[in-house]
């Protein structure tokens, strides 16, 4: 049985005593030594994961299974970034009297478009969470608010954000506002329900301790319930982050002058699979970065939580 040791020394000792095992232990030891450089190992695994996926795609192309006109592999759609980037310049192109050659460069266009979409996701996410947590807490705090508001929220929460798209355009026309509205509307209702659920699962012992110490209702909410639901709420936020990215694309594809959704629509209308996959790649990188930043923030804010993944790893 191969023993994966975390301690380099014992691993080496075991290897020396049984030379046959030495080669078998080389791989785990290599991994263990990389664990010391934690972030480097993470980068390495991320690259490996993506390369594996890209490699399989390239293989399909090389074997002739994937038609490059329909499913162009990464080396094709990433080949001419300058050329692809030009298509991101949707806003200037649509302005009267400007040609594709004018305005920001290809690279700048990609940055501007990416930043615009990210900003819409961010603003929508912040607005939705602040509103949802406030409403969720109010629902549990005031009984009458619960009875008054919760039925409507439950009624609206299964409605697909797509159904809100016309409403967004009726209300806000064209610009940032409809896209942000779409993100908020897509997240708000079930984030309220998630907040209520989090409040209901707070350990009653903690609440009872505060009660026996003479805490008032507002004090119990401020000092016990809100800190107790924070970990769950950040988890909900992270799950909804991906939802926000999905919705913002739908919103942008119709109502807004520029953004990732516009590029996808353009690619669709001009039958340009390379551009589709290039845009998907950019969205993936943006979403991944956003999630990574959120996880960093989570670890800062929730300093008291143990690392559960670490415990599961020993299984």
């Amino acid at each position: 049985m191969a023993v994966v040791t975390r301690d380099g020394e014992t691993g080496a000792a075991a290897g020396a005593s049984r030379p046959a095992a030495a080669t078998r232990q080389l791989a785990p030891r290599l991994l263990a030594s990389m664990a010391g450089l934690d972030w480097l190992a993470k980068v390495w695994w991320t690259c490996l994961s993506i390369s594996l996926f890209a490699g399989m795609w390239e293989l399909c192309w090389a074997m002739g299974w994937a038609d490059e006109k329909l499913l162009p592999p990464p080396h094709i759609f990433l080949d001419n970034i300058g050329e692809q980037g030009k298509y991101f310049n949707t806003a200037t192109r649509w302005q009267v009297g400007q040609s594709m050659g004018e305005g920001p460069s290809a690279f700048e266009s990609v940055l501007i478009t990416g930043a615009a979409t990210t900003m819409r996701v961010f603003v929508g996410l912040v607005l939705a969470s602040v509103l949802a947590i406030a409403v969720g807490v109010l629902v549990r705090y005031y009984r009458f608010f619960d009875r008054l508001v919760l039925p409507t929220i439950t009624l609206l929460s299964p409605v697909s954000p797509i159904a809100w798209l016309p409403v967004a355009i009726f209300l806000f026309g064209i610009g940032n506002a409809p896209a942000i509205f779409m993100v908020v509307v897509a997240l708000f209702f079930h984030m309220v329900l998630a907040t209520i659920n989090q409040i209901d699962t707070v350990n009653t012992n903690l609440i009872n301790v505060a009660r026996t110490m003479g805490a008032s209702k507002p004090q119990i909410y401020a000092r016990v319930i809100v800190p107790a639901i924070l970990p769950g709420m950040l988890q909900v936020l992270r799950m909804n982050l991906f939802g926000a990215w999905m919705v913002v694309l739908v919103a942008e594809s119709t109502g807004v002058g520029y953004g990732m959704g516009q590029v996808i629509m353009l690619a669709r209308n001009t039958f340009n699979p390379s551009l589709v996959f290039f845009t998907i790649a950019v969205i993936g990188v943006l979403g991944f970065t956003f999630d990574w930043l959120l996880r960093l923030a989570q670890r800062r804010i929730l300093y008291w939580l143990p690392d559960t993944a670490e415990r599961l790893r020993v299984l």
Binding site: N205, V209, V224, P227, L230, Y303, W304
Partner: peptide
């Protein structure tokens, strides 16, 4: 209480 009732934060 029987179970831990300390505030973890």
């Amino acid at each position: 209480f029987q179970e831990t009732s300390l505030f973890p934060w």
